[in-house]
């Protein structure tokens, strides 16, 4: 009975466990496309990784929520935007060892990773 109650509580609370997001509201232009609507020059390529730490089956994120789009925007820095963006998330070997062994099958805590890859660009001309 106690187990059933615990399961029910966890399920109800569990919506959003180990949540990762891809969301950005800043001024940089982040696109999956190969170009912007203005002439641009590629100034670099990036492949970034971020890891989020969570408590109680991923229910409570500690620190900034993991956000792939914000991670890409961070890589853009002072430049104008990023193109050819690709995102993925999951648990790599480190996450898996931390979550399943150190954190006892994710019950106590766990980590989750987000990866972002793309090209940083600067706008060099007017809109086409």
């Amino acid at each position: 009975m106690r187990r059933l109650a615990l399961c029910t509580a966890l399920i109800l609370l569990g919506t959003g466990c180990f949540q990762t997001r891809y969301f950005y509201e800043g001024p940089k232009v982040l696109t999956t496309g190969p170009a912007l609507d203005r002439p641009t020059e590629v100034v670099g390529h990036f492949k970034a990784h971020d890891r989020g730490f969570y408590l109680l089956y991923g229910l409570i994120p500690i620190g900034e929520p993991v956000n792939g789009a914000a991670l890409a925007a961070e890589q853009v820095g002072d430049h104008d935007g990023a193109i050819n963006l690709q995102f993925s998330d999951g648990q790599d070997t480190v996450d898996m060892l931390v979550s399943n062994l150190a954190c006892v099958l994710s019950i106590l805590c766990g980590t989750w990773s987000v990866w972002a890859e793309g090209d940083v660009v600067n706008v060099v001309g007017e809109e086409e």
Binding site: A69, A73, F87, G90
Partner: peptide, 21 residues
């Protein structure tokens, strides 16, 4: 691949985050 619950987000070309045109 050393990864559990891996999701590669296959997004369409010209999907944009951030400011609206």
């Amino acid at each position: 691949s050393g990864c559990m619950y891996h999701i590669e987000h296959r997004l369409p070309v010209d999907a944009t985050f951030g400011p609206v045109s």
